[in-house]
Amino acid sequence: MRVFVGVPLEEAAIEALLPLQGALRQGRLVDEENLHLTLAFLDDQPEDVLAELDAALGEIRVPALELEFTGVEVKGGRRPALVWADVAKVEPLRRLHDKVRGAARISGIDLPRERFRPHVTLARFGRSRPVDMGRLTAFLSEYGGFCAGPFPVERFCLYASTLMPEGSFYDVLADYPL
């Protein structure tokens, strides 16, 4: 099963992001029920590993924290792949990220080393459709300095991710309170 660990967004955080998606008007927008902050993408994992992971994630104890949006960026250089809202990399969030990665390692999941750039993906650009770079540049000029929050975070989740032609579908497998 293809899985990841992430932070679901509270309604107020989603409401803050929806106008950005409305203004972007290109790419494949992430459905509002799928907006989240990924802590660790774990790829395909067998059931026995997921059972160990669930137990390890359930042992994580960190206090509730807050998310704050601190800008909008494009990933992908000349050929944009994603538009996302940056999230402030505060110590409690970094600590949660580290503990989730530790739980994955304890469960036997080998994760690549990568820099943690907390963000919420707003839209994806496929290879088959051209990107209107003028419109994207204008969007970034207007919304690049977007700030909102703080928004409370009281839980994180283990999600299943099913790839569909129209985009990914996420299903919460387990919920962990902070």
Rank of each mutant, 00 (worst) to 15 (best):
V72M: 05
G108K: 03
W84S: 11
L158Y: 01
V153I: 08
F156D: 04
L65C: 11
G58C: 10
F139P: 00
A56H: 11
K89P: 15
R127P: 00
C147R: 14
V87D: 12
G134I: 15
E68W: 01
R101F: 07
V74T: 10
G77I: 05
D132K: 12
L93W: 11
K89H: 09
P152G: 02
T121P: 05
F139M: 10
R95F: 00
R115Q: 13
R135E: 08
K75H: 11
E73V: 10
F156I: 04
P63F: 01
L140R: 09
D86P: 01
S128F: 07
G144M: 08
V100P: 13
V90L: 07
I60G: 07
S128R: 15
G58W: 06
G76P: 14
T137H: 09
P130G: 02
A64K: 01
F125I: 07
F156C: 01
A148G: 13
D110H: 08
R135T: 05
A64Q: 04
R155W: 11
A64P: 13
R79W: 05
F139T: 00
I106F: 02
P80Q: 11
D110A: 15
G71H: 09
L67A: 05
K99F: 13
R61C: 01
H97E: 15
L140H: 13
K75E: 14
E91K: 10
T121I: 06
S128V: 11
A123G: 12
L82A: 08
V87Q: 12
G134N: 06
A85L: 13
P92Y: 00
L65R: 03
A81T: 13
W84G: 08
K89D: 14
L158V: 14
V62G: 14
A85P: 04
E59R: 06
L140N: 11
L96G: 02
V72T: 09
H97T: 10
D132S: 07
A81L: 09
H97K: 13
G102N: 14
D110E: 12
F156N: 01
G134Y: 11
V153W: 15
A103E: 06
A123R: 09
A64T: 02
L122Q: 05
L136H: 13
G58Y: 01
R101H: 03
V74Q: 10
V120I: 14
I109H: 03
H119K: 04
T121R: 06
A138M: 06
R155Q: 15
P63D: 01
G77A: 05
F69N: 13
A81I: 06
V120H: 10
R124W: 07
